[in-house]
Design a protein around this nucleic acid. Structure first.
Lengths: 179, 179
DNA sequence: TTCCAACAGTTGTCGCTTCAACTTCTTCGG
DNA sequence: CCGAAGAAGTTGAAGCGACAACTGTTGGAA
């Protein structure tokens, strides 16, 4: 295995990205835990369900939309169900499948959590960057995700959260609870 | 709490960043675990120690350089010590302090792990982006880190991994085992 | 029809991270 | 000096995520 090393420019970028990967999740997670007793990942689950027209999604669909594995999602959803945020019900059409439904309590929870979370995202990410940098970041993250997405499960995201510049097609309107 | 929502451009960027935060660490971590039986975070620990002139750092310094909390580092170092990768010795000058020393085995391990890790970083990050995007990414990550770094513990990184464009000052030469 | 491969989820176990408490040591104000 | 405040690490408990093994179900081919 003979790999060319990173030059100084590449190294500078990577070191910063690595540090970011280490720090950012904890910061956002901490805010949500303290203020709304919800994990960042749980927030994503609630957000995805709340944006569904039926307030419900199949487990595998939910897993794809939250970039999670099925085992992980299963554990998380079980815990969320015990707290009354979601409900699980077997799908009568395909009896292997499970549908995850957002409860009224779950909806109330994410509506309560959203403003603080949006504020945190603004404070630590969005408002720190110039509009030009936001556009650049979208392009960069897009390129990275496409190369990582071997199983192609993120097509839904690209359709829904398109800013009109990356993929070229017009996107949907701004959703309610997704910061 | 009244927070302005994210517009479509901001949302597109944030959704992608969130997905990245969810996926990228697992990808890099998995490669290192499989190929070198080391965590991504453990790799950082080894890398920081290997770049120190004395092959050693105080725990708090090491924590700052790896963006970790002290409890986390303490647990990790204990496990690494039991595997023979590092050693811990009390500091005679300040008897509260502990110095963490890289062993020969630890050095061998990171030298063995480095090529595969660099390849993974290239495959999933560096080589996916254009040189221009690399520069943009450095600026973006830099801005985010500065706003996150409330305790100011990352000054060392900025000095060492400067690409000459962000802070303006000339940086050090490319270090040996840091991808 | 029957069988088998692939799919959808769940569960258990293990390792890692976090949080809060605690110990020991240093420093600084009085 | 002396005592209090704070720093440096460590530890234990609790919760979350990854991996592998497992159950039950579907769809298609022989």
């Amino acid at each position: 295995m003979d790999v060319p090393w990173l030059d100084r420019t590449q190294l500078a970028a990577w070191v910063r990205v690595a540090a970011l990967l280490e720090v950012l999740p904890g910061t956002l997670d901490g805010q949500l835990r303290r203020d709304a007793d919800v994990t960042l990942f749980e927030y994503f689950v609630l957000a995805m369900l709340s944006e569904s027209p039926t307030r419900s999604l199949r487990m595998s669909e939910l897993a794809a939309q939250t970039s999670a594995t099925l085992p992980r999602l299963s554990h998380v959803v079980k815990r969320m169900e015990s707290r009354g945020l979601v409900e699980r019900r077997p799908d009568p059409d395909d009896r292997r499948a499970t549908t995850c439904v957002l409860t009224d309590g779950g909806l109330a929870r994410i509506e309560q959590a959203a403003p603080g979370h949006v504020a945190a995202v603004r404070e630590h990410v969005v408002d720190v960057l110039t509009p030009e940098q936001i556009t650049q970041l979208t392009g960069i993250a897009d390129a990275l995700l496409r190369s990582l997405d071997s199983s192609g499960g993120m097509a839904a995201m690209y359709r829904r959260y398109d800013d009109g510049a990356v993929s070229g097609a017009p996107g949907a309107a701004t959703p309610p609870v997704r910061p």
